[in-house]
Design a protein around this nucleic acid. Structure first.
Lengths: 211, 211
DNA sequence: TACTTTATTAAACAGTCAATCAATATTTTA
DNA sequence: TAAAATATTGATTGACTGTTTAATAAAGTA
């Protein structure tokens, strides 16, 4: 009784997950029934239940996939850089770029994080994330620490600073209108980098002189 | 046919809204059915339908109430201050304080903003908010502008800076665990203020000398 | 007082949900 | 090929959804 999840089954699971992403993006979590997902995958609802234990199981797999992808995208680009400052800029730019180039993934991620709950009813967004998302948080904190050790960066509370940076990134991802209407991605990117560098980068003599 | 909404009716509507807030906080938007809300208000479900046109109507009233309260709380405290810098600090501190002292309101607000949708299915969080929430955004932008005009603050993009600050505030409100486990409110408050002042406040000669 | 309006309940309604199941088709294995 | 395992459908189930309705209670009015 081999238990490797047969080639065709894996493909179908992929397809269902993709359809679920599309569904979440299009009609939101509340309306994202198995029937709606099945419709977009052009299969019967029963088949979803056959491949996933239940709806929560499907949503968990979907969430993992979304986190994996964005994490990989961002980390790839960060690891190309050498100095902490370069890494930090790459982190910010890649985060914003991923959101911009994958709006559907982004919406789906928001829908699920703010709706899915554990069996004991704790919402995911309140969860301590030892998982993938945390991988990004961890990486950001590492960059900041590294920068301080190498004296590229000033002293500041790393956790709070990481939170500020992630908040700024998330804010653009969320407020699809208020900000987006007035500021395009490139402007936001460069302005945000400027601001972050101002609050982080060590002010050496040349810098002070230019103030 | 007078249309002032009778004393007793208004009280009942209040009660239903409070029960709805409690429900959203406790079990989240997805499970917040009229039956669950009625149970907490200790009334029949039909009575909710009698006092509100439909569920969306109830949720809209609830959202308005939540926004009114937090906006009033924050603006009250900001208006006590004179200089732009003092106002900015008051804005940040009041925003964080309100969340901390009203966790249930906060959860309810999150649940509704990330779930409610317009009749044409646009999620509220993607909506351009000409409303109350925007009142806070607008106030923050005004503070930043005023600071620049009075040369208290450096030059920066006001929209991006406002977004960074609101992102930092929202991040603490959201990540109830990752941050909160490591950093208490007071520390986050003071560290955030320090960071914001560093990226905003005009660096006069005394400041530079201390670097 | 008698009458009208407002408030409230419990039951019923039509619809949707996730999950299950028996029947059937497809693929894999021997 | 024949048999077994896997994949898929479509229909069904029972629970729950928001809303409506008929009946009744309470409050207001004249």
């Amino acid at each position: 009784m081999g238990n490797q999840p047969s080639f065709i089954a894996e493909a179908r699971r992929e397809q269902i997950i993709e359809a679920a992403i599309k569904t979440l993006d299009e009609i939101g979590y509340v309306k994202a029934s198995l029937a709606q997902i099945a419709k977009r995958a052009k299969i019967s609802t029963g088949l979803i239940s056959y491949h996933f234990a239940d709806k929560r199981d499907l949503m968990n797999h979907l969430l993992m996939k979304l986190l994996e992808r964005s994490t990989a995208y961002i980390l790839e680009r960060v690891q190309l850089k050498k100095t902490a400052q370069e890494k930090l800029v790459a982190f910010i730019e890649a985060s914003l770029a991923y959101q911009y180039t994958h709006p559907a993934h982004n919406s789906a991620l928001i829908e699920i994080v703010f709706n899915a709950r554990t069996p004991d009813n704790i919402p995911y967004y309140k969860l301590s994330d030892d998982e993938e998302e945390d991988q990004l948080t961890h990486e950001l904190q590492q960059i900041l620490l590294e920068g301080q050790e190498k004296e590229e960066f000033e002293k500041f509370n790393v956790y709070v600073m990481a939170s500020v940076i992630q908040g700024a990134i998330g804010e653009y991802m969320l407020s699809n209108s208020t900000i987006t209407q007035k500021i395009d991605l490139e402007t936001y990117k460069s302005e945000l980098v400027k601001i972050v560098e101002k609050m982080i980068v060590f002010r050496n003599k040349e810098y002070v002189r230019t103030v």
